[in-house]
């Protein structure tokens, strides 16, 4: 009994480290293979369509409404200072530095990351991955690299769209609905927002893209145990990706800004 408890206490960090090591290994492998021929461009484009184009709607909606609610909330607070002119700046800064990249990544995790895990998980349990292997084709190269590269490329694109729409949403609420001085609203944005705010946000998004795709693919790739295993892998992929995104967001923010 005592030994059992002791073992499980030691087992937990061990499993964690193992998982961390496996994911890092997967990341390195993907990185290496990304620069090796053959470049499966059509695979990458297919994934870019899946991740980028099909996620557009959800990103558009979240971006716009985030900006809107941000304007609503911050104007409530700023009115107490009599500083409503700052609402635009707050929306712009929050969107570009933080909410744009993070919310976009979380939405893509939910939409595309989950289906990466489910798809690869299904391919694993139906031996499609083995089929690739016996054809002397590297499944990581064919299945994971395109997804990771596509995420890496599309996340910044989705994020900048979300950034802009968030600001537009904030503008609609702030200026059109709450009647904040339009000149102040826009001028404060232009004055406060710096290019590094935007670019660093996009760098974040690209990193999140790698994180969510590597983790989701890893979880799917090593699925065990039939349909149930696929379901478990999908859940784990989403949870682990989201948590890792939020943690690494803190790390990245403290490094970059």
């Amino acid at each position: 009994m005592f030994r059992k408890i002791l073992r499980s206490i030691f087992q937990l960090p061990l499993t964690f480290l193992q998982e961390l090591g496996n994911i890092s290994r997967m990341f390195l492998q993907v990185t290496y293979l990304s620069f090796r021929r053959p470049f499966k461009l059509d695979y990458i484009f297919k994934q870019m369509e899946f991740i980028g184009v099909r996620s557009m709607l959800v990103v558009v909606i979240t971006g716009t409404f985030t900006g809107m609610v941000l304007a609503l909330q911050s104007s409530y607070g700023f009115r107490k200072f009599g500083a409503e002119g700052l609402v635009g700046a707050i929306v712009a800064l929050s969107m570009t530095r933080e909410l744009g990249p993070v919310l976009t990544s979380l939405m893509v995790t939910g939409r595309a990351g989950s289906s990466m895990a489910a798809e690869l998980g299904t391919m694993r349990v139906t031996e499609q991955i083995d089929a690739l292997t016996v054809m002397a084709l590297n499944p990581v190269k064919y299945l994971i690299v395109p997804r990771v590269v596509a995420s890496f490329l599309m996340l910044p694109v989705l994020t900048i769209i979300s950034d802009l729409l968030g600001i537009v949403g904030g503008y609609i609420i702030g200026v059109k609905l709450l009647g904040i001085n339009e000149g102040a609203f826009i001028n404060k944005i232009e004055k406060t927002l710096d290019l590094p705010d935007i670019y660093n946000g996009l760098v974040k998004a690209a990193v999140f893209g790698i994180i969510l795709s590597v983790i989701s693919c890893y979880k799917g790739y090593y699925t065990r145990g039939g349909a149930e295993g696929v379901g478990r892998a999908t859940t784990e992929a989403v949870v682990l990706s989201s948590v890792t995104i939020l943690i690494s967001d803190y790390v990245l923010t403290s490094i970059m800004f």
Binding site: E119, T122, M123, T126, E127, Q128, D130, A131, T133, V134, M135, A136, N138
Partner: peptide, 24 residues
């Protein structure tokens, strides 16, 4: 290693028990 093994695999074909077709 994987590289050499793949050379051997290229001489193989395989039909899986559940066919394992790529469903995409």
């Amino acid at each position: 290693n994987d590289k050499k093994l793949n050379e051997v695999r290229k001489t193989f074909g395989m039909l899986f028990q559940e066919a394992a077709l790529f469903d995409s």
